[in-house]
Design a protein around this nucleic acid. Structure first.
Length: 298
DNA sequence: GCGACAG
DNA sequence: ATCTTGTCGC
């Protein structure tokens, strides 16, 4: 009975999605809009957020969407929201937003309504911003729909517009010697789409940072570096750790016994979290991140 | 048949 | 994204 989100959507749907991306792309602001973004120490910045979606191992439809807010510059968790969701759209490279975004937008709206004072001033998104097939990745999408500054952080290079993870690219990576070092990622059109960043001294594999919304690439890269205690920016890392933990706890209670004795002690209590406010599986959203028209099934 | 492929 | 143990290093 459970609808599986498999198979690639019909061409017709993909065309719809492309039209939507093109339409929303016009609203992207790829420059600094806040005073703290220009400040050398980011003074004025107090809260940074991160979002992520983790999956249940044998069910492409079940996942846990999480939104966390950390203090800056301490990077301590102030807020955490994890919720199980049912994904309807399949994953198609270039259309990640249509699969994961509805739930993340919901999470932001809930925060805005229940704890407005904890609203993050910038959001780190797992995935790309303008470094995308059509210049509108999930970080841009989330930024436009929430009107929050967003930074796209991908763990792998999306090979678009002439960008390739080839020998030359690898040579450039070798030249990144210290945390904070980076080099531009230029698309075929000569435009800089993002930057490969060595997030800290002891990390060899770079992060691919690109503008999502309302922040310049320079500020995005600098802030990303300043939020890395490890390779992955702390906001996204915490969202990831907590969402997987949430799933693990859920699987333990009614199903799998107790695999190994995990070492996920990394989760402490945030000052606020809508955990107790149990309602429905929180799957109000449908197919379109916009919430506009409805594209029911695949 | 082979390479690509954010999460 | 997820499947997976040990292992090398600070």
């Amino acid at each position: 009975m459970a609808r599986k989100a498999a198979g690639k959507p019909p061409e017709e749907i993909l065309l719809d999605w492309k039209r939507e991306q093109a339409s929303l792309k016009a609203r992207v602001v790829d420059r600094d809009t806040e005073a703290w973004q220009r400040d050398p120490a980011f003074s004025g910045l107090q809260r940074v957020g991160g979002v992520d979606v983790s999956f249940v191992k044998d069910d492409s439809g079940s996942a846990c969407a999480s939104l966390v807010v950390l203090s800056y510059p301490e990077l301590e968790v102030l807020y955490e929201d994890c919720r199980m969701v049912t994904l309807t759209a399949p994953y198609v490279s270039g259309f990640l937003a249509f699969r994961e975004l509805p739930f993340l937008v919901d999470a932001v709206q809930q925060l805005r309504q229940r704890e407005p004072r904890l609203m993050p001033q910038v959001l780190f998104v797992d995935g790309n911003g303008v470094l995308h097939h059509r210049g509108f990745g999930v970080a841009c999408h989330l930024g436009v729909l929430t009107d929050l500054p967003c930074i796209g952080v991908a763990k792998k290079l999306l090979q678009v517009d002439g960008l390739e993870n080839n020998a030359l690219h690898k040579e450039k990576i070798q030249l990144l010697k210290a945390g904070g070092d980076s080099f531009p990622l230029m698309g075929g059109s000569g435009t800089v789409l993002g930057r490969a960043l060595r997030s800290h001294d002891h990390s060899t594999k770079p992060l691919y940072v690109s503008v999502g919304h309302k922040i310049s690439l320079e500020a995005a890269v600098r802030l990303t570096h300043s939020c890395c205690k490890f390779r992955i920016p702390e906001p996204v890392r915490q969202a990831d750790i907590r969402s997987r933990d949430y799933i693990r706890r859920t699987q333990e209670v009614q199903g799998v016994p107790a695999p190994p004795s995990g070492r996920s002690k990394e989760a402490q209590r945030p000052k606020a979290c809508p955990q107790g406010v149990s309602e429905e599986p929180a799957g109000t959203s449908k197919g379109t991140p916009t919430g506009g028209k409805a594209c029911p099934r695949f």
